[in-house]
Amino acid sequence: MSLTFETALQSFRPQLPLAVALSGGADSTALLIACAAHWPGQVWAFHVHHGLQTAADGFEAHCRALCERLAVPIQVRHVDARHASGQSPEDAARQARYAALEDMLGEARDVRAIALAQHADDQIETIMLALSRGAGVAGIAAMPMQWARAGVDWHRPLLRTGGEDIRRWLKERDAEWVEDPTNADERYTRNRIRRHVLPTLESVFPQFRDTFARSAEHAAQAAELLQELADQDLLNVGNPPSIKALRALSRARQANVLRHWLRVAHATTPSAAQLGALLDQVAACTTRGHRIHLKVGRGFIERNDGLLDWYN
């Protein structure tokens, strides 16, 4: 069920000291104010300056001034978040941001946990983007509320709280925040979803935040089961995979284990068409003379005796 901002914070029990990823926007500003009040002297702020717009200097100034008022220590990292050719600008910024946060965690060695301010509307946007791309259960699972990475607990305590409730909490306290001008730029798909799709969903399905959240939880459980099955099947088919062992599995399990093998052994992901073509070749591979040579992910798969080899 949806949670108010205050209820979400009451149920948030991180290890301390805690870092809050602070962009200067409403959501992270509210999260920092609440955490600093709840755990005085135990909270840090981490700010990432993406260097993508002139307003970024104002974001940093707001964050520094806020932290000074709250008596919260702040770390700032300047990064080059420009995207490479063929890369999504949003993906490039996200990768640069998480790399900077991990870097700051490495320096603030006493920090035991970090909190990110994504909320329920962000989660819905992530699910909608995943569905628009034809994602599987891992994509529909969207953003987890908690996970561990590099010895630190990462949290998203506001994933069940709507953005409007967070802003209402701030306004009641006369707190100020900065608005990122890119949030109004409809060249970004997330902004179009936020402006056009979410209001329609709310008018037709008033409880859509709760129901979508349940679907994401179900998808996360299914993704976990598929991962466990892929681990087991990879042990059985081998690395590189045996074609004979693969053919003993159903087509769905072949797809699951091959996708897993390519990701963990070769850091590449096949398209749906590439994976389908590979499965067809495995099914047709009934004689010694049958050759396989397919473009898969960033490289190629070939048959080598009774095994599948990948190279780039």
Rank of each mutant, 00 (worst) to 15 (best):
Q87N: 08
Q87V: 15
Q87F: 08
S88N: 14
P89W: 05
P89T: 01
P89L: 07
P89Q: 10
P89Y: 07
E90A: 11
E90D: 10
D91K: 13
D91R: 14
A92W: 13
A92S: 15
A93Y: 04
A93C: 10
A93Q: 11
A93R: 08
A93E: 09
R94E: 03
R94S: 13
R94Q: 10
Q95A: 15
Q95W: 09
Q95L: 14
A96N: 10
A96H: 10
A96K: 10
A96I: 14
R97M: 10
Y98C: 06
Y98M: 11
Y98I: 03
Y98N: 05
Y98P: 05
A99W: 00
A99I: 01
A99C: 00
A99T: 14
A100N: 02
A100H: 07
L101C: 07
L101S: 05
L101T: 04
E102A: 00
E102V: 00
E102N: 11
E102C: 05
E102P: 00
D103G: 03
D103Y: 01
D103Q: 13
D103R: 06
D103A: 03
M104N: 03
L105G: 08
L105E: 00
L105C: 00
G106W: 01
G106A: 06
G106L: 04
G106I: 05
E107V: 13
A108T: 01
A108L: 07
R109L: 05
R109Q: 06
R109Y: 02
R109N: 01
R109I: 03
D110R: 15
D110F: 05
D110H: 14
V111M: 02
V111T: 12
V111A: 08
V111R: 04
V111C: 03
V111Q: 06
V111Y: 08
V111W: 09
V111P: 05
R112E: 13
R112H: 07
R112W: 10
A113M: 07
A113S: 15
I114Y: 07
I114N: 09
I114C: 08
I114R: 11
A115I: 15
A115D: 07
A115E: 13
L116N: 10
L116I: 04
L116R: 00
L116D: 02
L116V: 09
A117Y: 04
A117R: 08
A117E: 04
A117S: 15
Q118F: 08
Q118V: 00
Q118K: 01
Q118L: 06
H119D: 10
H119V: 03
H119P: 09
H119E: 12
A120V: 12
A120N: 10
D121H: 06
D121C: 08
D121T: 06
D121I: 06
D121K: 07
D121L: 03
